[in-house]
Structures are given as structure tokens and as C-alpha cells.
Simulated assay, not measured.
Amino acid sequence: MGAKGFAVDLNKPLVFQVGHLGDAYEEWVHQPIISNKGPRFFESDVLELFTKTVWWVIPTVWLPVAAYFVSMSARAGLSGYDLASLVGLGLLLWTFMEYTLHRFLFHMRTQSYWANTAHYLLHGCHHKHPMDSLRLVFPPVATAILSIPVYNLVKLISTPTTTPALFGGVLMGYVIYDCTHYYLHHGQPAKGMTQKLKKYHLNHHYRMQNKGFGITSSLWDVVFGTRPSSLVAEKKR
């Protein structure tokens, strides 16, 4: 039951319903429904189609784009060492962006109709239906739009020659992130780093949604004090 008696009907398209929950949206969206079958978002079949993306589209679309940007810096005369260093720096920059976007944008609290609706489309749907495999990675159109301000940000901290390679590294980091995120939900790692990452991420979903914002790394959770305390204690034992 939501604000003023409103209840979401899971048998109808959800996107234009969730805004009516008002300040009850935060609690509702963090009560996950564990099912491989995702909900319908829109009445329109065309709009519905654009909300679904299979995971392999991400590397297929964005790795060639990342390689193109790196090649731009190579054609500008940068050495192989410089290119590798810039790509590595871009990967590190992505992990910071991954953390800050997840913590401050994807988990911002909303209560107005349109803010709830936007949040649900951006990230809330993933917490409500965490096993929906077709809405786990970002649609390429949405990524392309978001990449514009990211590219402009990279330009501010680099030179015309180094910007493409640095941005290419950021794009590679994004591809690793989205593919890793998909695997953590649908893969079955038996041991090693991927098993630890899966446990870390599922802890964020089902136990401590205000902790553990890193997906590919817990580095920035450690730096900013958002690593779940129970995992810290477990590691010390």
C-alpha cells in the first residue's frame, strides 16, 4: 500500500504507476521481487522494446568505440606506453565514476511523481526486479546520451591529444562494469575474486542497500567509508 492508499498493480505497466507512491516509493522499490521474468514497463510496444537490452550488446557496441578513441590519440603521435597509461588512468577514473553515480544518483531519495518515475527507470527497477536479465545493462541510447557530459568532463582534465585515449579507457571501464554486473547476478562463480564480488554485490541488494556501492571494486567504498561493516569484520576473522 502506498501514499494515500495507492497500490502498484504488478499486472499492469509499472513506469507511470510508481510516481504515485510518493514518499512510500523508497520502501517499495527496495522490497525485491525475485523472478527471472521482468515486469512490463510501458503500454506501448515500441517504448517497451527500447527498455530491453541483452548483455552482449554492450561489448559489441562500445569496445569498437573505445578502440576508435584510443586510436585517435595514437594517430596524434602518443607512444604505446603513453596510450597504455592513459587507458589505465581511464579505467581508474571509471571506478570512481561508477561509485559516485551509484551512490549519489542511483540511490538518491525521491518522492515527487516525476522524480520517482525517473529513478525507477534509471535504477529503481533493478532493485525491484534484480534478476530481470533484459534490464540489467544500460541501453546503448541511454549510454550515448550520458557519455556526452562524461566526455566533456574528461576534456577538462586532459589535453586535446590525451583526451581520446583517456575517454577510451573510461569506456572500457564501463564495458567491464556492465558485463561484470550482469555476471554477478546471473553467473555462478564457485571461488576466487568473482565469487567475492558476487557476495559483495548481493549484500548490497538484499541486506545493506546504503553500503557497498562498488561493483567492479570495493576500493572507493573503503576510501569513503561505505564498505559494509559486517564484511569488514568477516575479513578480520
Rank of each mutant, 00 (worst) to 15 (best):
P59Q: 07
R103H: 03
V65K: 01
S112C: 09
L153H: 02
H123A: 15
A76T: 10
P130V: 03
G124D: 12
T180N: 05
L166V: 03
L171T: 00
E48I: 10
G38S: 04
Q188S: 09
L184M: 05
L49E: 11
H102I: 08
L166F: 02
T110K: 03
S217L: 11
Y182Q: 00
I176R: 06
R75H: 10
T159K: 04
A165I: 03
C125Y: 06
R227G: 04
S112F: 08
F16G: 09
Y120D: 06
N203L: 09
M193S: 12
H123V: 12
T180C: 10
L166A: 01
A76Q: 12
I145N: 05
G225P: 03
L121I: 13
F167E: 10
M208S: 15
W28C: 11
A118G: 13
T53C: 08
V87G: 07
K196T: 08
Y99T: 00
P13C: 08
V8K: 12
P228K: 01
D23R: 14
Y183L: 07
G19T: 06
A190D: 07
W62K: 10
G2F: 13
V18Q: 11
K128H: 09
L105S: 06
Y182I: 00
Y200N: 02
D178C: 00
T53I: 00
L197N: 01
L101G: 00
D23E: 15
A118K: 12
Y68Q: 07
L121T: 08
K199W: 11
S229P: 09
G88K: 04
M208Q: 15
A118V: 15
S133N: 14
I176Q: 07
D23W: 10
H205N: 10
G169F: 00
H123W: 13
I148R: 10
G88R: 02
L153C: 12
H185V: 04
S217G: 10
I58R: 04
F41G: 08
H181P: 06
L14V: 03
D9Y: 09
F96L: 15
V150P: 01
G214I: 08
H119F: 06
Y200G: 02
L83W: 02
H107P: 13
P189W: 05
